[in-house]
Structures are given as C-alpha cells and as structure tokens.
Design a binder for these strands. Structure first.
Lengths: 266, 266
DNA sequence: CGCTTACTTGACATTCTTCAACCGCAGTGG
DNA sequence: CCACTGCGGTTGAAGAATGTCAAGTAAGCG
C-alpha cells in the first residue's frame, strides 16, 4: 500500500464531510473519526462575508476565534498617515485564535481580502475542542508555530530582500500553503488579491509592484494574470528568493502503520 | 497604601534574591514566595558567554530553554549572500523557549550581541516550572504574547517606516523594555550594540544608520553616544514613530488588595 | 454605454546603498 | 612610551532602488 493510497483514504471520497480547515489539520496530525466529527461540527455554522469586510477590528476585545473556510483574508495595521502594512495572509483552512486579546485589545485588524466564508468559534467551544481532542490541539499548536515561522520569513524579506524577491517569496508561500489544503496544483493557484494588497504586504508602492511583476514575468519565473498565479519555473523561483517549501520541512506525522491502523485501511 | 508602596514591597529590598528575569516576571503576575524561590532556583546555574557567541545555532534541535540574565542578544538569520536580518532583540529578563524546534529545526540563530549571562533550563525543569507554578506560566504566556506583538511592530516598521522612524522606534522599544526590568531610568539606558547591529535590525545599511542617527540627534530627539541612549524628548520621540509604551498597555495585574494579601504587607 | 476599479506607463524626485577614504580610540606588542 | 592595528563610526560622491505624480489603458459591471 502506498502513501498515495493513505492520502486518498485520509482526505478521501469515502468520507462525505470535507473543508479546507479539515484538510489543513489533517496534514498536521492523524485524526480519529471523532476528531473529524468535532471539526465538522465546529465549522458548520458558516457565515459569508463580502470582500473588504473586517472580521476583527483593531482595538476590539474579541471573545471568539474564527476559522477561515473560503477566501483570502489578512492581518493588517495602519499608521496614522494612511500607510498600511499587511502582517500576514490568512488562507482557507487557517484558524485565528485571538490570544492577542489577552494582552488587552487587538493591535491589528483582520480584514477579508476577498469574499470569505468563515465559522465563528466561541471561547467555550474552542476550549472544548482543545481539551477533548488532543490531536487537534497538537495540530493547532503546529499551525501556530508555522504561522510564527512565516512571520519571521516576512521580517527577513521586508528587511533584506529586494522588491522582486519579496514578491517571488510571497508567491512561493501562497502556492505552498494552498497546496497544503488542496487548493493548488503543482504550479498554479488562484491569487484573488490586488496589487494594492501585494504592495501593502511587501512594503512597496503599487507602481513598483507592477514593475517588479513584469520583471519576474520577463525573467520567466511567474505569470500573474486574471486572479491567477502560474509559476513557470518553480525551482528557479525558489532559488531566486531562497524559499524552502514549508510542507516538506514538517516533521512527518508518526509511522505509516499507525496511520493505516487509525484509518482502518491496512 | 499606594501602588508605589506595593512596587517597593514587591521588588523590594527585604527580599535578597533579585535578577532581571524575576523583575520581568514580577511585572506580569503576582508571585508567591514559592514562585520566587522557583525562579531563583532555575536561574541559579548562571553561565557567562562572550560577545558574538551563538547561544543557539540555526538548524539546531535544541532541547532546553534559556533565560537571559545579563547582556543583549538577538535572533537573526542570514541569506546566502551574506545579508543578515535581526528578527528580535533579547534583553535581560527574557526567556527563550525553544518551541520553534517542534517544527523541526531552528529556522534562525540566537547570538550574543554583548557578553551575556544566561541560565539553561532543561525541558523537564521548564515543564515543571509551568505546571507547578501557574502564576509563572501565566506570566510567561503574557511575555510570549508581548514578544509576538513586538514582532508585529517590527513588521510594520520594516515595511512602512522610514529609516529614522525605524531607529526611533527601536530606541523607544529598548527604553520601554529596559524600564520594565529596572535597567533604565525615565529617559536613558545602556545601548551596548553597534551600528552594524542596528542596521541589521532596521534593514538598513550602516552608512544610512549613521546618517539617520545624526538626523535624530539634530532634531533634538535622542543622543546616542558611548554605548548609551539618552532620549532628549520622549513625547516627541514617541509621536515621531507612533510608539505606544507596552508597559502601559498591559492589563494591570489583579486587584491591589489581592497583591497586598499575597505579599502580606496590608 | 458609461463607470469604476485594477493595472500600466513615463518622467521625475527621494531614499537608501555602495564604495572608498578617513578619523578616533582602545588594545597590543615592541 | 610609542608605533601599529583593528574596530566602530563618519563623510563625500555616485549610483541603484524605490516612491510619487499624473496620465492613460483595459476589463468588468450596472
């Protein structure tokens, strides 16, 4: 039995319920049927939000977490003169705990870059999820650590990378993260965000983003058009911006035998 | 009885043991005598390190945490062509948990900017500290959140602030954090790091750091000389870079009566 | 069809970097 | 005691990277 087979079984067609959050968590821990049911339950009350809506505002004292099921969102902050910096992108499958609030109020906002579908998770439901599902708790801890690692990557990029490198890195990150939730194929994915948002993420002006994109394009690295990212040469793209796919750096979940046993597909 | 009085009692002379880590934690939770003893114990095996030594190397799989008791250190990362970005400064009293390693290996290094004194904390001792001392655990969680908030501030700075603003922000941060561990007075503190390090933190060249410092100086905001930072006009410095003192944004520890009861000074 | 929004382009200004020389000081060895 | 050296910092000049302003194009949408 191949690893492929397990993947299929794990994510698979035999199980009716499926969403990006489940796929995300599945990649970080082996889930029991009970875990999967809990995830289904917690992501059931789905809510739609239009683009540009704020999911969480700055200075809020939020008392519930949220799961992003569809669409792109971002953490961002404004300076008083209107300069904006995007701190992180949230992609389908990401969970936003609101621990920040333990310090007081939100020091940044979370906004919908595109139309989104989200599920609110009350504090109690969240605590229950963690305490009754250790595998999920462990997966969420890993996800949190990954988020922090990405944030460190951004720091390096904003401080030390050129405009083109920053964009290349951002694209590599998108592709890598979307692949993890089965929303991208080997070389392309949706990229439903504007150049304004790219520039606020990369700390650049929109004009310079436009020109840098053309540079990447004419270097044969990527095509960005009509809300879609097409990578022309992934190895060269990664080499250009020194990107290391995160999915491959994870400690692989336990042994395959364990997986097979848990899934009953051995 | 005033708050002043409690501060004195809390940090006070009547208690012999004292170090930056204790002072840091004390500001984040009310500690029992037992908590303080545990902190004394864990920070006792002090080790000295020369400047430029690496406390943790990239790609390490560290299995112990460390407490920085004296000196400045920083998290940093190199790109392959030698460009370096400092991700965060570690100041006396800071604890470095090494959760990052849960993801695999360290994605950045931690280096001593100056000569340092540190205490290593084994994984078991760390777990014991957390599980047997809920107040300490809570304080460390707050400290962690504060570290993340600072990292977000840096992201905004690197992406959207000018060179002078970044340096001003960095100085504001140093002063604020050192005040929290009683290592700074109202307007000045030690600043034992070189312009090379300032530039690697701010994402600038050393030459530009030198010039920007002169700009800050001639604007009457700060004096930086002989390893010391002297703020000439704190309100204007904060306004210039939109800095909000973190110490004042914390949720104040519980009620004063509780403090008094715990300390037995009522 | 006419708007609006996203993006592009050109010209020019600003910020920041690079290179190279130089200064001052502290340590070091003769 | 003094020359030598190395490190941290400063300065000037030139150039690269990025920002700003303003006008223009293209596509989606009511």
């Amino acid at each position: 039995m191949t690893y492929e087979r397990i993947e299929t079984a794990r994510r698979g067609a035999e199980r009716p319920f499926d969403n990006a959050f489940l796929r995300n968590i599945s990649g970080l821990a082996f889930l029991s049927e009970r875990d999967r049911a809990a995830i289904a339950q917690v992501s059931a009350p789905m809510r739609s939000l239009p683009a540009h809506a704020d999911l969480v505002r700055r200075d809020d004292v939020p008392e519930r977490a949220l799961i992003l099921l569809e669409g792109f969102a971002c953490r961002y902050r404004y300076l008083s003169d209107g300069r904006r910096q995007i701190l992180a992108f949230l992609l389908p499958g990401d969970l936003v705990d609101l621990d920040c609030a333990l310090l007081g109020r939100m020091d940044h906002a979370i906004g919908a870059s595109t139309a989104c579908k989200i599920a609110w998770v009350s504090h109690e439901a969240y605590e229950r999820l963690l305490s009754e599902h250790p595998q999920i708790a462990s997966a969420l801890r890993l996800a949190k650590l990954a988020e922090e690692a990405i944030s460190r990557d951004w720091l390096v990029g904003l401080g030390r990378r050129s405009a083109a490198e920053r964009l290349a890195y951002l694209f590599s990150e998108f592709l890598d993260r979307l692949q993890a939730v089965s929303l991208a194929d080997e070389n392309s994915c949706d990229l439903p965000i504007t150049q304004v948002e790219l520039s606020d993420a990369a700390g650049l002006s929109t004009v310079h983003v436009s020109r840098s994109l053309q540079a990447l394009r004419s270097a044969g690295l990527v095509q960005v058009a009509s809300r879609r990212l097409q990578v022309e040469d992934l190895p060269r793209l990664h080499a250009f911006c020194e990107f290391t796919p995160r999915q491959k750096t994870f400690i692989k979940p336990p042994a395959i035998e364990f997986a097979a046993a848990t899934l009953g597909v051995a």
